[in-house]
């Protein structure tokens, strides 16, 4: 299941989706919104996605993961819209026969989603806002 959604993510539902009687492991990554960045308080984040491309890129990531690890079930759900600190922004879940594969596959998927999927976030502070990682000069300030 691949989902880009404005609604809050139901983690238990995702775990149920990937569960399999043949699985000895379910591995879940939950990404949450931090309340600070570069020493400043974050009021909220604005997430935006190029949805059709995000889904097709995530599908490619899953295809690659399926070749490398024996996935029995998998799911990726990413929030878009306005998210407050503490809210869940992304959930990746996989099930595999043994635990080592589940850790590796889950990490591969979330790392790839973060580096390839066309999804963006803007941090909103008390005194301004900034698209994350967009400009080199801002990273140097960090």
């Amino acid at each position: 299941m691949i989902k880009i959604t404005e609604k809050s993510i139901d983690v238990q539902k995702i775990i149920d989706t990937v569960s399999s009687l043949g699985a000895g492991a379910v591995n879940v990554f939950i990404g949450t919104v931090r309340n600070n960045a570069n020493g400043k308080n974050v009021l909220w984040l604005e997430y935006e996605a190029y949805e059709t491309m995000a889904v097709s890129q995530i599908r490619k990531i899953i295809d690659e993961a399926s070749h490398r690890w024996p996935l029995l079930g998998w799911a990726v759900s990413h929030r878009i819209g306005t998210l407050k600190p503490g809210e869940t922004s992304v959930v990746v879940a996989v099930s595999t026969p043994h635990r080592k594969d589940s850790f590796e596959a889950c990490q591969f998927i979330i790392d790839s989603v973060k580096s390839v999927a066309p999804i963006w976030k803007k941090e909103v502070f008390e005194d301004g806002e900034e698209w994350i990682s967009a400009r080199p000069a801002l990273e140097m300030k960090a």
Partner: peptide, 11 residues
């Protein structure tokens, strides 16, 4: 369908 993809920052 053509789109500009600045540095991504999902997650």
């Amino acid at each position: 369908e053509i789109a500009l993809i600045p540095p991504v920052s999902g997650g």
